[in-house]
Amino acid sequence: MKAAVLKAFDAPLAIETVPDPVLGTGEVIVDVAASKVLAYAGEVLSGKRGYLITPPLVPGAGGVGRVRAVGPDAVQLAVGDWVFCDPTVRSRDDAAAPSIILQGLTAGDARGLSLQKYFRDGTWAEQVRVPTENVAPLGTIEPGDAARWCALGTYLVPFGGFLAANLQAGETVLVNGATGAFGSAGVAVALGMGAGAVLATGRNQQALDDLVRRFGPRVRPVRMTVDEEADRQSILRAAPGPIDCVLDLLPPAASAAQVRAALLAVRPYGRVVLMGGLGQDIGVPYGWLMRNCVTLHGQWMYPRDAIGRMIGLVRAGLVKLDEVEVTRFALDDATAAIDHAAANAGPFKVTAICP
């Protein structure tokens, strides 16, 4: 099969013929129709981000395709089924605290390196081998919509955060960092789950205005100035009432003050979920956290059952994939796809490689 191969960090991708993946028990082979290209893929493949991957490998975290072959333990999947390939692979030998990797992207920690070496090849190839539990049926879709369904991976991240927060219909939600790809998806997901109001924070006024245009008055935009106390007061003024839940999705370049501005605005007995990329301590006041009985939860990715539930939200029209602008590239043009994704990052955009 043809694949894009990273042979060393900061080396050009090689488009070449590699052996077809071999099916094992507990695994599925999928013919890849489309795979999303992350905006920061170039930083990963250059080694700049320091992700735990070991070249050579085929990059590509998740995608959409059709089942080519299933192992003997699959009881519902059938050859030809349209499926979403979830890159969030968990070790099977420790149910209480499994190691997690993102197939084709990174191990979560040193424990997961051996798992990453086995499932290291991702979806920038004509075929991919994935664990059976990581294949989610999509139902019938048009082949031309495969790239749009890749956006599922973006929506699933904040969905995992809201599930961790036990978001309830009618609650007031704050999405911190709402103008990026994951944050804007978080606004859409919160509304789809029935949030009464969504406070959307960000520094880009145009992007905030666009969220209101897309989703209406349940979105309450808050333009941040990176003055912690002033930003917190702006959040509280925009809120229609107590803030029940905060989901932080700020990127690595953000500051601890930007996180605290939102976190400390949550009501007593409220919930805060951290899913962003901040690389520093945030300095939450111990006494405030204790006396207000606030739940602070770290969440990486999402539980397995979230995928089927998110597909259900899309099928019901509660989360709309037609909001997504898609740009497609052939596998031979994988390098151009990486450059395009970096230059065109932002809300409701997908750059996809379509083998």
Rank of each mutant, 00 (worst) to 15 (best):
A352H: 09
A4E: 04
E142C: 00
G194Y: 01
Q76C: 00
V32I: 15
G317C: 03
A136P: 02
A39G: 12
D10A: 15
I243V: 14
K7A: 10
A330M: 06
G241W: 00
G312K: 13
Q233D: 13
I15L: 13
T172S: 13
R220T: 09
G50K: 06
L115E: 10
F348Q: 08
P59N: 03
M275A: 14
Y286L: 15
L113Y: 01
L45N: 06
V5R: 12
G317P: 05
V273F: 11
T225A: 14
G317M: 06
S184R: 01
C85A: 15
A185S: 13
L289W: 13
D20G: 03
G194T: 03
G24A: 14
A74Y: 00
A165G: 14
Y286M: 12
D94N: 15
V89W: 07
A256V: 05
A110L: 13
L321M: 07
A195V: 08
A34E: 07
V89A: 09
S234T: 12
A345K: 15
A146N: 00
F348Y: 15
I101A: 11
L249I: 09
L102K: 02
L77F: 07
V246L: 11
D333N: 15
F159D: 00
D244W: 08
T225H: 13
R120V: 08
P217A: 14
V175W: 03
G139E: 11
I338N: 08
Y40H: 14
A330H: 11
Q280N: 06
S99L: 12
Q299I: 03
R271M: 04
Y155V: 05
D73T: 13
V22P: 02
I100Y: 00
P240F: 11
R304T: 10
M275T: 04
M275S: 15
L191W: 05
I338K: 06
P242F: 05
G192W: 00
V18C: 02
E16V: 08
L313F: 11
D305P: 07
R120M: 11
A341N: 08
E43S: 11
V187H: 02
V67P: 05
G71D: 14
G308C: 10
A11R: 10
H340A: 02
M193Y: 01
L318I: 00
E323R: 14
D109M: 04
I29Q: 04
A337D: 01
A69P: 08
G153V: 01
I101F: 10
A230E: 13
Q280W: 05
G317H: 07
A230D: 12
Q258Y: 01
R92Y: 03
L211M: 10
V198L: 08
V272I: 15
D244Y: 02
P21S: 06
V324Q: 03
L13P: 07
A200Y: 06
P355I: 01
R271A: 12
A125N: 11
T179P: 04
P87M: 09
V30Q: 02
Q168W: 02
V350H: 00
G24R: 08
R291C: 04
M193D: 05
L113M: 14
K320E: 14
I15Q: 01
D81Y: 01
P21L: 05
